[in-house]
Nucleic acid binder design. Sequence first.
DNA 1: GATAAAATACCGACTGGTCGGTATTTATTG
DNA 2: CAATAAATACCGACCAGTCGGTATTTTATC
Lengths: 210, 210
Amino acid sequence: MTKQTRGEDTRARILVSAEQGFAQTGYDSTGVAEICKAAGVSKGAFYHHFTSKEEVFLELLDRWLTSLDRQLADVAASDGSLQEVLDGLSKMAPQILQEAGGQYAILLEFWTKARSDPKVWQSTVAYFQRYREFFVGLLANTPGGGSMALEERQAAAGVLVAMIIGLLLWGALDPKAADWSCVTRTGLELFVRGWQGKGLPSNDRKGEQK
Amino acid sequence: MTKQTRGEDTRARILVSAEQGFAQTGYDSTGVAEICKAAGVSKGAFYHHFTSKEEVFLELLDRWLTSLDRQLADVAASDGSLQEVLDGLSKMAPQILQEAGGQYAILLEFWTKARSDPKVWQSTVAYFQRYREFFVGLLANTPGGGSMALEERQAAAGVLVAMIIGLLLWGALDPKAADWSCVTRTGLELFVRGWQGKGLPSNDRKGEQK
DNA sequence: GATAAAATACCGACTGGTCGGTATTTATTG
DNA sequence: CAATAAATACCGACCAGTCGGTATTTTATC
């Protein structure tokens, strides 16, 4: 093993162990010593590759966001309709939510730390927004969606993102509380139906009561 | 001031300061000394009234859940329809979300700590479920809702709760990102429309009518 | 291609400071 | 003079980060 690859390997092992630690017990309660032990590496090696524990965290966040961007770009490039994209999301759901119980639990850590760390906050909030804007664009392509006021589309897109956030959080916290992929599918279905019925003034103003 | 009232006052001040601290900077980064200082109280007083920092946290959680139960009971007792209840929620939203940026930020702390503390986890998860079950009951009272399979109602109720969770989290994290009461209203509207259109195979299969 | 020099990867004992919690003392009330 | 409430000084565990030193690989020189 050449020197360089060895170094890269060590670095990678540290990142993996840190991610596991953060995901399982949180940033604060995961000590550097612990990470090192799990990675089979000394503290010296740790601080050889990273200047601080926080730097490790930020790199993990960065990697996560990058992969997210890639996924988003993929979906956006496919140029599908709302229905298609949400169907796609539906299909991705089981896999993502599967991981949510395990590795994706680090999501919670990102959101938690966003409160105290401005850098993390900015990144976190920014990708919420990015997702929302993405959906705003999508909604404009639905029948009647183009004529909708921007605010309405923004609000609806916000709802969608909030729903996804909620599902991820709840799913990560309590994977066995429900069949999450089923709930996700239902949520997206309801959303689409609600949105498509929005133009029509039918059932809302006077219609039902019970 | 009698001895007893003095004690109660001290105790209350500690709780308030602790809540503020936890909400603003999180459980871990809020030291006991800090809480005491904010409350204008000594460490001795703190440990006179509480056996540990964690006990304070659990009491705050307990109070929060109790008040939540009360609200839930109120709404349930009113025996309203889905529409009415969600309208009620819509009206409560501005107030709650107002506080979300400030005091309700402690919600995040509860959810965070739920990951590492089994007690907190149990409580947290339990009230998610309780809320969901509440909505399941409500959904049964909608036109056509009674005939719906239990799983469908559960999934839909889960969606609703997830949406609310997402809105609270996002709203607490970034109060200025949107007009949250508007987004909430939109979300509930979309949900109701989506749910009421659910029985009918209308919009997506073939034509449309109601 | 041998050898010296430099750079890189790594080790682990140690430190400085933080923080939850305790022990002891002092004040206040009934 | 009890007994409760509150203040102060202090302890010990823990932990992020440091530092002096070693081992291994690469580069330079002849």
